[in-house]
Amino acid sequence: MRISMLLLNQTSPLLASLDIPTERLKMEPLLSRRQKEKVLIIMGATGVGKSKLSIDLARRFPAEIINSDKMQMFEGLDITTNKITEEEQCGIPHHLLGILNPNDDFTAENFCEVASLAIDSISNRGQLPIIVGGSNSYIEALIDDKDFIFRTRYDCCFLWVDVSMPVLHSFLSDRVDRMIENGMVDEVRNIFDRTADYSKGIRKAIGVPEFDEYFKEETFLDEENRKKALKKAIQKIKDNTCELACRQLKKIHRLRNVKRWNIHRIDATEVFRKCSKPAEEAEEKRVVGPSTTIVAEFLYNFVSMEVPAPVADIRDHITQCLVT
């Protein structure tokens, strides 16, 4: 069953184009809920590994993932927007990923509408909604709505994956290089349009405006100057990506220190300083393990002095502890 037209008319026409499952969607009055549902929110600057952590946690707990990265909600530009691939999703259901027309104008209010429906649907299937993405303005609009309805309905657990900025900037620079190697230039070239509106939709994504300038002048340049212009565009993408990371970090600090959100900081810096096997070991020790413990405590009031060992399904472990 999909969203009925009656429900769509009660929200907004935009929802009619979105493919959100609503099995057993509860429409009962707010006060009839005896217990708050739980929602996990994973935050952090671009490139810190939020998506991977969400997958790791969804493989340990009964969960589904809701994307809150505004550019990844649009269809297309998978390389440029760094969308998680179907293979990387590991069979975990993902919502609000690549569901919008590239030219749509999608606001924080629109996000609140569709995300709320997805959260309600996931919760009613007995799964934990995991909201993950770098668009903190969307997350803030959802969590701290003007009537505080969300906080009344849901208990929230916030995980913040943090990486030292110098280390992260180096990683982001290398990531842009990998995106170029994977075909980013041609991907953006395919949507190049001199008359397009770059103030809305997917054309606001970092990489599109920068390459737009390059595409406009490349035909008038000789080979040497064309290479210089391309290098300049790539460097601008790197600079703008690092600036985005800094802005995201500032917003998280504001939510934590000014709005007093109870955000659990997970330091992943050591993971980015390692390579191959040591990186996997550091990730389990520094990121996945501590995050698993925090989520277990949040869901089951489970307290442990040690980080649980990685298991295929932690629910049996939690149940045994609660029984004893």
Rank of each mutant, 00 (worst) to 15 (best):
Q235T: 04
Q235K: 15
Q235C: 09
Q235A: 05
Q235N: 15
K236P: 04
K236G: 06
K236C: 10
K236T: 10
K236M: 13
K236V: 02
I237K: 00
I237N: 00
I237Y: 01
I237T: 02
I237G: 00
I237M: 12
K238I: 13
K238H: 10
K238Q: 13
K238A: 11
K238D: 07
D239K: 07
D239T: 13
D239Y: 02
D239H: 05
D239E: 14
N240S: 13
N240H: 09
N240L: 08
N240P: 13
T241I: 07
T241V: 10
T241K: 00
T241P: 06
C242Y: 00
C242T: 04
E243Q: 15
E243T: 13
L244D: 05
L244H: 07
A245S: 09
A245K: 01
A245R: 04
A245F: 03
C246N: 12
C246E: 15
C246W: 09
C246Y: 12
C246F: 11
R247L: 14
R247H: 10
R247S: 09
R247G: 06
Q248G: 10
Q248P: 10
Q248M: 15
L249P: 00
L249K: 03
K250D: 15
K250C: 09
K250N: 13
K251A: 04
K251S: 12
K251R: 14
I252T: 04
I252E: 00
I252A: 01
H253G: 02
H253Y: 14
H253L: 06
H253T: 13
H253W: 06
H253A: 12
R254F: 14
R254Y: 14
R254T: 14
R254S: 02
L255Q: 05
L255E: 04
R256T: 11
R256C: 03
R256W: 01
N257A: 01
N257C: 07
N257Q: 10
V258D: 11
V258G: 04
V258F: 09
V258C: 07
K259H: 12
K259G: 05
K259C: 08
R260S: 11
R260C: 08
R260A: 04
R260Q: 12
R260G: 00
R260I: 10
W261D: 02
W261Q: 05
W261C: 05
W261L: 03
W261E: 05
N262T: 06
N262A: 12
I263M: 07
I263H: 02
I263F: 02
I263A: 02
H264C: 04
H264Y: 03
H264F: 08
H264I: 12
R265M: 14
R265T: 15
R265I: 06
R265V: 08
I266D: 01
I266V: 12
D267K: 02
D267T: 14
D267V: 08
D267A: 07
A268T: 08
A268S: 13
A268Q: 02
A268W: 02
A268G: 11
T269Y: 07
T269K: 01
T269N: 07
T269E: 10
T269R: 03
T269G: 08
E270H: 10
E270G: 06
E270F: 05
E270A: 11
E270L: 11
E270V: 15
V271E: 03
V271R: 00
V271I: 09
V271S: 03
F272R: 01
R273V: 10
R273S: 04
R273F: 09
K274D: 12
K274H: 12
K274L: 11
K274Q: 15
K274Y: 11
K274P: 03
K274I: 13
